[in-house]
Each structure stands twice: as structure tokens, then as C-alpha cells.
Amino acid sequence: MQSTLWEGALPERLEQTFSGHGLSYQTYLGQNFVTAPAGIIAGIVRFLRDEEQFDFLTDLTAVDRPKDPARFELIYILYSFTRNERIRIKTRAGENEPVPSITSIFEGANWLEREVYDMFGVTFTGHPNLKRILMPDEWRGFPLRKDASIIGMDNEWVQSNLGIESGQ
């Protein structure tokens, strides 16, 4: 990605507060994002909400990059009404590495984290009700992982519940 370094007052304040955690600040097509380790993600979200008026969680999602050592890239998009500005926070998690939940900071993260769990199998510690949301409860596998084929996912479930071959 041809992203450039994001410079400004906000990255400086973030660097002051979270120095030593190896945060990096980039911008691409005018959209700013911060990359941070998963352990302090809740701290950053709370800091941005309380100190920087980013009081709205727009979205929380993930991207699967199976070739990377920590395959899941989590993306938090925050918005500030007062500043009319968006910021993305990116973090990485491996296959069996839980990520701290931010449901205590934004209630809206509840379903979003459930969806990430449902689709990618990323678990969130501290989530009040982490279970599948869109797929059936008994479904095996995580559909949005890159190794899940678009046809032939969980054949067993499809055959026993729908009586057809998966992918038909």
C-alpha cells in the first residue's frame, strides 16, 4: 500500500500517551489510520473517546491474511461528531489469540464483535455474549476466512438441514 506517514497533532498526542507500544500512523487517500498491538486496543479506543471526542463507533471488522504470521487484521472505525473526522485503528491477532472486547466502551460493538467471531473465529475477551450471529449455531467453520471455499462449506450441516449438496 502506498500509504504515507500521517503527521499532525493527534498522532503526536497518541504517541505521548502510548509511547513505547510501537504505534504507527499512516494515511492513504486522505484517510488516517493507526496501527497498534491488540493488547492496548481498548485503551486506545477509550482514550480516543474520552480525550479526543471520537464518540462514535462506526464499524468494527476484520480482514483475513493467512500468509501473515498474525493472520487477522482487525479494523475499528471511529467517528467524531465535533471534529467531523474519521480514524481507523488497525491491529493484528493470530488464530488463537483473543482480543480485548470494547463492548464496555461502546455497546454498539456487541453485535459487531459477534459478527467478527462468527465470520472469522476471532474471540474477544470480556464480551458478554460471544456466539454466532448470522450463521446457524451448529455451523462449523468460519465463512470469511480465506481458506473457506465459497462452495462446499460445512457440507454436513447443509445436507442434514437442507437435504442438498452444499454449493448448489
Binding site: 500500500m1 502506498q2 500509504s3 492513504y28 487517500l29 484517510q31 462506526t58 464499524d59 471488522t61 480482514v63 483475513d64 479494523i75 472505525i77 474519521r86 481507523r88 470469511l144
Partner: peptide, 30 residues
């Protein structure tokens, strides 16, 4: 080009956003 973008509009029901990740191929990565 490889990169990612979040664009949202005011749909009748609220903020409708698309977060697209490109890996430089003809198909979106996500």
C-alpha cells in the same frame, strides 16, 4: 492499487458504509 478505503453515504436508513480492501488484482480482497 493495493490499499483500502472506507466510504459511506447517507442511505434512507442511516450511514451505509463500504470498506474495501484491494490487493491490486481484479477482485476485491475484502
Amino acid at each position: 492499487a493495493t490499499g483500502e478505503v472506507y466510504v459511506s453515504i447517507e442511505a434512507p436508513k442511516g450511514e451505509l458504509g463500504y470498506f474495501i480492501v484491494s490487493d491490486g488484482t481484479t477482485q476485491p480482497y475484502r
